[in-house]
Design a protein around this nucleic acid. Structure first.
Lengths: 343, 343
DNA sequence: GCAACTGGATGAAACGTTTTAGCCGCTATA
DNA sequence: TATAGCGGCTAAAACGTTTCATCCAGTTGC
């Protein structure tokens, strides 16, 4: 009962092995009566297809992998949900791998995925350098779609949100509110998004911020804990150098900052205003509802999956595309209090 | 370059096919000089093992799956992280599947996993009835470990947290604070945890709550949105019937409730106290820091993975075990204001 | 000098599918 | 009546591994 093969099913139903395969894969090529006999045998033996054998023959699997930077970050899990919908609609399976921002783990995952001859990979790669292991996948003919990272490479599709624009939106808003000493909380800058959001903010300052300054409060990761530590560092500054507004590279950081600032008795936004990035579900539920730059997360995943499936389908004929979505600023209480300009 | 097989590697290195396999699997059974020649050939051809063929021969894969109810819920992602660590330490791969609380999707996933002959499955099943598809996996000899659900079945291991105790802790605390009209927010009750947390609360009331009442505010899911809707319903009650304290079946609900209550001008905990469940990272960062029942999430995942690996290793000799962890109440501001008993 | 080992390699079988070429008996066509 | 075509099926090859029985050439022990 535990491991019937197609062969035993065939014997049981009194037909040839190929016929069973036909029942499974092209049921209408076989007469109704034999088909029924085969189906009965399958049911009786509890036969379940062996996917390894199937793949071996086909040279390809029916699973698609998504490699995310951090499974515990709602940004990525929302993306996963979007991708899931598209992939499962085709009968394929989406498997989720977590690199945890660790290059070695990412590499290990990609190796195993390559061994499995997955049908395609959606990935937000760790870091921002060249990506030899991704190239290797592509050489082998496995489609790769970059998600929210590395737009514009010629050899693969990508989907992304315009992070420079996002940085601009946040900064413009803070300048509009009258802030002149502003800090960007985020890091490491080796992460492209972190750098681009900063670049956008810096560009906005350049355009109109006479007399305003943008300092960087570097963090080593994008977590709540890192946010708390960053806040501690800022509080260590002499009061008159202390920024009056913070633009955080993501909402987790922003929540951490908020937590620490309020714990230390500062008022948000009266003493310090905060704008986050991602607009995760918890942003609106925070101690002080958080202004944030919203990204179309599910759609990001959906579109990425669609591009991947298209490439997998059309092979050579496929034209790589680079889809860029626009972010949107959501103003909430953490930054909605205008401030008189001060020196 | 795109698809060298072991055979071509062998030809390239001037050895037999079996020797290449030996280099890969038992390197010290082959002399250093030939070994090097083979390794060179592998590098030159860009050879990558074909896992399907490998599995086909072995009859088993080296991946372990975890099927969670909701990838966007931090409770599960923390669990995933715990399991990941253990699984990856053995060189195997953990793949994450999301059932999204949907029985049909769960079933589909399990079918595909069975076809893939995965080495084992960690799962928090949807619903609480009999589980024919899990039985099927077990019949086939694929180890299954239940996570946070269905403790005590004879045919599989399980890990869980004592939800009845958790309910007790929360309820005792609220009674200690002087509350007498209390509501349990959660649903559907078909989910065992939801039912057990309620049972614990009810038991605590039974034990000592003369004159106190526990009503149920049923929800259809355990999300922030559902929490908001539940709060609306509660606010529709005449003021004197309205509960003074809420015990929510998880933190997402609690955050939703909190959000809606404060939006409608009620003060927490002065007007209504709230206790959540899970103690997710965002609980402490909420508008009003949330009291919550904490579960050892990562350890849950770690232990589950360990049990699974042990079963996969020892096969017949394996004794199924049921590990139960104790939850712990974390009191924060959302419930820390004692109230004089009123009628 | 012969038998018994031994380390290092080989060749073939087996895993469970899918697919392709081919066979058989029947019907429709000319 | 011969031929072509067709529906329904079979037999066999192929996919890329791992493993197991064998073999061969040295070496050791007596």
């Amino acid at each position: 009962m535990a491991g019937a093969s197609i062969k035993e099913v065939a014997r049981h139903a009194g037909v040839s092995l190929g016929t069973v395969s036909n029942v499974l894969n092209r049921p209408d090529m076989v007469s109704p009566s034999t088909r029924q006999r085969v189906l009965d045998a399958i049911a009786e033996l509890g036969y379940v297809r062996n996917d390894s054998a199937r793949q071996l023959r086909a040279g390809q699997s029916r699973t698609i992998a998504i490699v995310v930077l951090d499974v515990t970050n709602p940004f990525f899990t929302d993306m996963v949900r979007g991708a899931e919908r598209v992939v499962e609609a085709t009968g394929a399976m989406l498997i989720v791998c977590n690199s945890g921002e660790d290059g070695a783990r990412e590499r290990r995952h990609l190796e195993l995925l390559e061994e499995q001859r997955v049908r395609g990979v959606l990935i937000t790669p760790v870091g921002d350098g060249p990506q030899p292991h991704l190239e290797k996948l592509i050489d082998r003919g496995i489609p790769v779609v970059l998600v929210d990272r590395g737009t514009g490479r010629a050899s693969r599709c990508s989907v992304a949100v315009d992070d420079v624009l996002g940085g601009r939106l946040a900064m413009d808003h803070l300048l509009d509110q009258g802030h002149r000493r502003i800090a960007y909380v985020g890091g490491p800058l080796s992460i492209a998004q972190v750098a681009e959001r900063h670049a956008g903010a810096a560009a906005a300052l350049e355009d109109r911020g006479a007399g305003a300054e943008l300092r960087v409060a570097a963090t080593t990761s994008l977590t709540v804990m890192a946010g708390r530590r960053a806040a501690e560092d800022l509080l260590a500054l002499p009061a008159r150098q202390r920024p009056t507004a913070l633009f955080c590279a993501n909402d987790l950081l922003a929540l951490g900052v908020l937590q620490e600032l309020t714990a230390r008795g500062l008022r948000v936004p009266a003493d310090i205003a905060i704008v986050g990035y991602d607009d995760i579900e918890f942003a609106a539920a925070a101690a002080v509802p958080l202004s944030s730059v919203r990204q179309p997360r599910e759609q990001l995943g959906r579109t990425a999956a669609e591009l991947l499936l298209e490439e997998a389908e059309h092979g050579e004929a496929h034209q790589h595309r680079h889809v860029v979505f626009q972010p949107e600023l959501v103003v909430r209480r953490s930054s909605d209090q205008p401030r008189r300009a001060r020196r």
